[in-house]
Design a protein around this nucleic acid. Structure first.
Length: 491
RNA sequence: CGGGGCGUAGCGUAGUCCGGUUAUCGCGCCUGCUUUGGGAGCAGGAGGUCGCAAGUUCGAAUCUUGCCGCCCCGACCA
């Protein structure tokens, strides 16, 4: 019920936390900054993971796994990379505990100090490139296209469920190529994989773009990204793909002999998406009654709730539900029959709405007599009576329609919230009163970007791919500019 | 690390300013009966180191000091 979910206009953060907690996705944990992903939330992640994993394999990638721990010396090799991650690393210094000699409990055994500290990976570039050095000798070993599903740790000052946790689950692809062009094509291809996933599975429209130098990944020459818009008008980076040039190849000495028998450094990419996508999903689609999940990745697509008086009615309903279930399952629809007798129908309706299950079917004695079921869709809250004949096929098209409507709605909102601004006054007014992306001219310098950020808290989210070129003057400095870029306040 | 708020049963809370019987209420839980088309009703029941520690006092959830933890805002960031 809406009284239990904080209205988002009043306090968006509380609203978001309530959605995650009451939607059954995750909980706070005993460890500061970390969260427990509950079965329902994890099923959502697994579903997303499976779709992405298939896309990676369809584009020629293989999965592998690299160690959790990274020797400190590895991390210090690439200068920008250190700069970017040093401030947020968990460090392992010892390998043994001992009984506390001065009291109860255990203490770290000072004799077990590691000669070289190990860093819990904040990302795996360094350990992976150190490994690739041994795997790559010839142009015939290229391209090397590898992905890993893993957890990483970034010791952030402040955390938020799914959006920024100290430990998070993600996927990181790391590829090596013979030429720069090939590596760039790879980075662009993977960006498109992410964009396709966001739009067609998560029903989340995204802007494909490239980051400004200041917002680039630490150690990259170019960072491609997909940027999504949340319902509070803030932007969220939903995925990134980096063209790393030869930076890592050079510091880890990854070379290959080309067809002309000459030694060359390889060209690299890395790309990743994380459990943050779940945060994006929650903030993009939910309403005051709870989560709204797009059918294609909802762990549960349909829930069936029986309404009955007495065992006799229940039996008849059970029989009919079994038919419906088997139809739906045959069509590949994820369906649950909730006939638990400790909660009444109204309670279940509210519960599954909070969890964002796209379609609910209620079946009672009255419906059986009329050969119908009550079908309710989560996205629009519409309810209608539907014939039991051909119900399976009907639900299939309904799920498709919900998927499409959710995307259309999010896209309409997003499109309405890309607004051009031509003066700083306009820019700031739009940020404060409307939010969303603001399309404005920028002189291309990091100094200007920094000044705008200090003054407005807005950053350049991206320079859209295939951005129309347009002569203009920088919104802050008045210097000439050739194109508009997208600014926003962001998560 | 700065600013704000908070910590009382599984969850949410009243009581704290101004110390005083057996710590309040709701949800949930257990038992029984009645119920079931939008978070059921009645009756009975179980459940508490009032975040931790020290202090003041005849007496502390309440006052003092110290510590711990959480949430929100800021800096940092997927």
């Amino acid at each position: 019920m809406s009284k239990e979910i904080t209205a988002r206009s009043e306090d968006y953060s509380q609203w978001y936390n309530d959605l995650v907690l009451k939607g059954g996705l995750a909980d706070y944990s005993a460890v500061r900054g970390c969260m427990v992903i509950k079965p329902y939330g994890f099923a959502l992640w697994e579903g997303m993971r499976d779709v992405l994993d298939k896309k990676f394999k369809d584009t020629g990638h293989q999965n592998a796994y690299f160690p959790l721990f990274i020797p400190k010396s590895f991390l210090s090799k690439e200068e920008d990379h250190v700069e970017g991650f040093a401030k947020e690393c968990a460090v392992v210094t010892h390998h043994r505990l001992m009984k506390n000699p001065d009291g109860p409990g255990v203490v770290v055994d000072p004799a077990a100090k590691l000669e070289e500290e190990l860093i819990v990976r904040p990302t795996s570039e360094t350990i992976i490139w150190n490994t690739y050095k041994d795997w790559i000798k010839s142009y015939r070993d290229l391209p090397l296209l590898i992905n890993q599903w893993a957890n990483v740790v970034r010791w952030e000052m402040r955390t938020r469920l799914f959006l920024r946790t100290a430990e998070f689950l993600w996927q990181e692809g790391h590829t090596a190529h013979a030429t720069a062009d090939e590596a760039i094509a790879e980075a662009e291809q993977m960006l498109e994989v992410y964009a396709d996933f966001a739009e067609n599975y998560m029903a989340l429209p995204v802007v494909r773009g490239v980051k400004s130098p200041a917002e680039r990944f630490a150690g990259a020459l170019d960072t491609y990204c997909i940027e999504a818009l949340m319902q509070d008008g803030k932007a969220l980076q939903a995925g990134t793909s980096h063209f790393l040039g030869q930076n890592f190849a050079k510091v880890f000495d990854v070379t290959f002999t080309n067809k002309e028998n000459k030694l060359e450094h390889v060209w690299a990419t890395s790309w990743g998406v994380s459990t943050r996508l779940i945060g994006a999903l929650v903030m993009a689609h939910s309403d005051d009654d709870g989560l709204v999940l797009p059918p294609r990745i909802a762990p549960l697509q349909v829930v069936i709730v029986p309404i009955y008086k007495g065992a006799e009615q229940k039996e008849k309903i059970d029989a009919k539900v079994n038919e419906i279930m088997s139809d739906l399952k045959k069509a590949g629809i994820r369906v649950k029959y909730d006939d638990a007798d400790n909660n009444r129908p109204g309670w279940k309706f509210a519960e599954y709405e909070m969890k964002g299950v796209p379609v609910r079917i209620a079946l009672g004695a009255r419906d059986l007599e009329n050969n119908v079921a009550e079908v309710a869709r989560r996205d629009s809250k519409e309810k209608f009576s539907q014939s039991l004949d051909g119900l399976g096929a009907y639900i299939g098209t309904l799920l498709d329609d919900i998927q499409q409507q959710m995307y259309n709605k999010a896209k309409a909102y997003r499109d309405e919230h890309i607004t051009p601004a031509n003066t700083m006054e306009e820019f700031e007014k739009l940020l404060d009163e409307k939010g969303g992306f603001i399309s404005a001219h920028w002189d291309g310098t990091t100094e200007t970007e920094e000044k705008i950020k200090e003054r407005t808290k807005a950053t350049i989210r991206c320079i859209p791919l295939n951005n129309p070129q347009e002569a203009g003057t920088c919104i802050l400095t008045g210097k000439p500019s050739t194109q508009r870029v997208l600014f926003a306040r962001a998560y």
